[in-house]
Nucleic acid binder design. Structure first.
Lengths: 225, 225
DNA sequence: TGATTTACTTGACCGGGGTCAATCCCACCC
DNA sequence: GGGTGGGATTGACCCCGGTCAAGTAAATCA
C-alpha cells in the first residue's frame, strides 16, 4: 500500500533524511515505499537479496542470525528513526541476518539506486550514512567485548544499568528471551541471575518491570570477577 | 619522518584512494603522513582521541580490546591496503580499541578534515568508505555469529578452512595466542583442539605450518554438535 | 470467561572450556 | 656451543553456564 501524501512528511522526520533539500526529498519520496508489517512477520530472511534499506517509522524490529534448531542470536533491536540493512546494500551481498517485527510496524523502504543518487548529490547525506554505519560498528565492537570479557552476571548488570530509567525503574522492552539472546545467554540463566540479584537486595523484578534498589552495589558487580 | 615524494605513489596504490583524480590525490598527499612503527609498538591506545584514519602500507596491525589483567580480545588483523580506525573518526569518539604493530610497519595517516573534503568532492570516494565500513560490519556480525553459535572445535575448523592455502598447506600468520584470542579461545584450548584434530588424522601441525590431510572430514566437523 | 498456547521460572545434572601450574620447545643471542 | 626467555604444550582440576524436564504464570483467543 502506498500513500504518497504522508510519505513525504514521514521521511522528513527521519534523522537520515533531515539534511535533504526540498527537491531531493521529493525525489526520495517518490521512490520510497511504505511497508506495514504485522507483529512476528519477517521483513526479510537470511539469504534474501538486498536492493535497498529500511527505516523504522513506527514499531520495533529485531535483527538476528538464525541457527540450526530454531535457535537464533539477536544482533540488535531497531526502533523509530533507525535504519537497518544498509551494510548489506552497500556490499551487494544477500542478507546474512533476518529481520522480524516485534510489534505491528511501519517501515519505509528505499531503493539502493536512490540512496546512491542522494549520496552523489548531497555529501552531507553521505556523511550521515557514514556516521550511521560507524555507530553500528561501534555497538558491535562493544558487544564483542562484552561477550568475550565479561561473565554472565556482569553482562546482565551492564544491560540493566544501560537501559533508560525513571525513578530507578527500568523495563524490559521485549520478551526476556530476546534480551537473553542479545546478551548471549539462555533464558534460564537470565532468569536465575535476575533472581539472584533480587535476593541480594539489589533489584526487584516483577514481569518486565525492574526496580533498581542499590545501583551502587549493582555497579560494583560489574567489576568483580 | 615525511617523504612527500613517494607518499603520493604509495597513496595511489591504496584501494581507498584509487578513485581520486590527480588534483585530489595531490591534496591528499600533501595532508597525509607516513608513520613508521616498530614491531610491538602501539599506533594508539584505548581512550586516545581520533582525528584521522590509518592505512597500512607495509606490515600488519592488530586491533584489540584491552582487558583487566593484561588480557585482551583481538578484534581483527589488518594488512597492506587496509584502512582502520575510520569508524571512530566518523563518530568523533575516542578509540575504544588499541592498535599494535605485529611487524615493523609503515602506515599512512590522514587527517579527518581531509577525508571529509574528499567525500565532499568525490561521491565515489564516499561510496568506497561506505563499502569499507560495511565490509567491516559484515565481518563483525559473522564473528558474533561464530562465537555465539559454534563451539570451540567448529570455530577452529572454520578458521583453518577460511585461511588461504596452497597444496593443502596453511600457516598461522601470527602467534597462536593471537589467533586463539581472535577465535574467542584460550591458547591452551586452541592447542588441545589442534592436537585432537591431528590425532584424528585430519591435519598435521608443525609450528605455524598446518597440513590439511582430510578437508572433507574437516568440513564435516563444522556441522556436528 | 475459561481454554490453550506461549513465556517464564525452578530444579537437577552435566560437560565444555577456562584456570593454574609445570614442562617443553625453539628462536635468538652471546 | 650452551644459555635464556617467551611461546606452546600438556596435565589436573573445577566452575560457569548450558541442557533437559517439569511446573507455573501470563498472554491470547474463542
Amino acid at each position: 500500500m502506498r500513500h504518497k501524501t504522508d510519505l513525504g512528511a514521514l521521511l522528513a522526520h527521519q534523522p537520515l533524511f533531515r539534511s535533504l533539500d526540498a527537491a531531493q526529498l521529493a525525489v526520495m519520496t517518490a521512490a520510497a515505499q511504505k511497508i506495514s508489517i504485522e507483529k512476528n512477520d519477517f521483513v526479510f530472511h537470511r539469504g534474501d537479496p538486498c536492493n535497498g534499506l529500511h527505516v523504522v517509522a513506527v514499531g520495533h524490529i529485531k535483527l538476528a542470525v538464525p541457527a540450526a534448531n530454531g535457535q537464533q542470536k539477536v544482533i540488535d533491536f531497531f526502533g523509530p528513526g533507525d535504519a537497518f540493512g544498509e551494510a548489506f546494500m552497500f556490499l551487494d551481498k544477500p542478507y546474512m541476518v533476518e529481520a522480524q517485527a516485534l510489534d505491528d510496524s511501519l517501515l519505509i523502504w528505499i531503493d539502493k539506486q536512490d540512496i546512491y543518487n542522494a549520496i552523489d548529490r548531497d555529501p552531507s547525506f553521505a556523511r550521515r550514512m557514514l556516521a550511521g554505519l560507524s555507530l553500528r560498528l561501534h555497538t558491535l565492537v562493544k558487544d564483542i567485548e562484552t561477550v568475550n570479557l565479561q561473565n554472565a552476571t556482569q553482562r546482565v548488570v551492564a544491560y540493566l544499568l544501560s537501559q533508560p530509567r525513571e525513578a530507578d525503574e527500568t523495563r524490559f522492552p521485549f520478551n526476556k528471551g530476546l534480551i537473553a539472546s542479545k546478551l548471549g545467554l539462555t533464558p534460564e540463566t537470565l532468569s536465575r541471575l535476575l533472581h539472584q540479584l533480587a535476593e541480594a537486595g539489589l533489584i526487584e523484578v516483577s514481569g518486565k518491570r525492574v526496580q533498581i534498589i542499590d545501583s551502587a552495589a549493582l555497579e560494583a558487580r560489574m567489576y568483580v570477577a
